[in-house]
């Protein structure tokens, strides 16, 4: 059981190993706080959609499973969207369209189809939590690197906390701007993926 959970974070990390769900990862990882918000949304949707799909897997007709998955997922995404708009308006504005787009995030549909539909409820929930945390971890690491280098702060919250000034005032004035722009996203994810492959290769060698 525990292996299912750990696998989602490490061995089957959706972003860094399976390389799925890259679009929101690259777009939202411009700051650590955005990344955490997005991660939380994905964990919620993934866990609950896995729970529901797995609980009803014996009732869901085979040829109708995709439409039903989509209904289940979009329901949870809409709930997240509403709740975020109501209680975390700043974050919701920052994540923008990427929250509703979780509906078509291949991590979630992939776990529903590939795992939850075939496994018991307990395992499916653990898988959802694991994959969700794996996604969050990856996007949070990326957000951290990009925010620190590209903006000179860490964990700044829109309209609230200014963030830790990790690299000092000089860096705040002249940050490595392009780290926040799309090229920075590709660069960071490439280094992270490359690093993981490198360690894996060394370990198995």
């Amino acid at each position: 059981m525990l292996k299912t959970f750990i696998d989602g974070i490490v061995k089957n990390n959706p972003v860094l190993v399976l390389a799925i769900g890259l679009c929101p990862t690259l777009a939202v990882s411009t700051s650590a706080f955005n990344a955490l918000g997005m991660g939380a949304a994905v964990i919620f949707v993934l866990t609950f959609s896995n729970l529901i799909v797995s609980s009803f897997r014996k009732v869901i007709p085979d040829n109708l499973r995709i439409p039903i998955f989509i209904i289940v997922i979009s329901t949870f995404v809409t709930i997240v969207d509403y709740v975020m708009k109501a209680y975390l308006p700043g974050l919701s504005k920052n994540l923008g369209v990427f929250v509703p787009l979780i509906v078509v995030n291949c991590i979630i549909l992939g776990r529903a189809e590939g795992f939850a539909y075939k496994n018991s409820v307990g395992k499916a929930v653990l898988d959802g939590l694991g994959s969700g945390i794996g996604f969050t971890l990856a996007i949070f690491i990326m957000g951290t690197i990009r925010e620190i280098l590209g903006q000179g702060t860490w964990m700044s919250i829109p309209g609230g906390f200014e963030g830790f000034k990790v690299l000092g005032q000089g860096f705040l004035n002249y940050p490595v701007l392009f780290m926040i722009l799309p090229p920075g996203g590709f660069l960071v994810i490439a280094f992270l993926m490359g690093g993981i492959r490198y360690f894996e290769a060394r370990r198995s060698a």
Binding site: T75, I79, Y87
Partner: peptide, 19 residues
Amino acid sequence: ASALLAVVYEKTSPEIEKR
């Protein structure tokens, strides 16, 4: 699904408007 969403909408929409 629609019933669930209706409940959530009912609960959150006044808050969203207030914000």
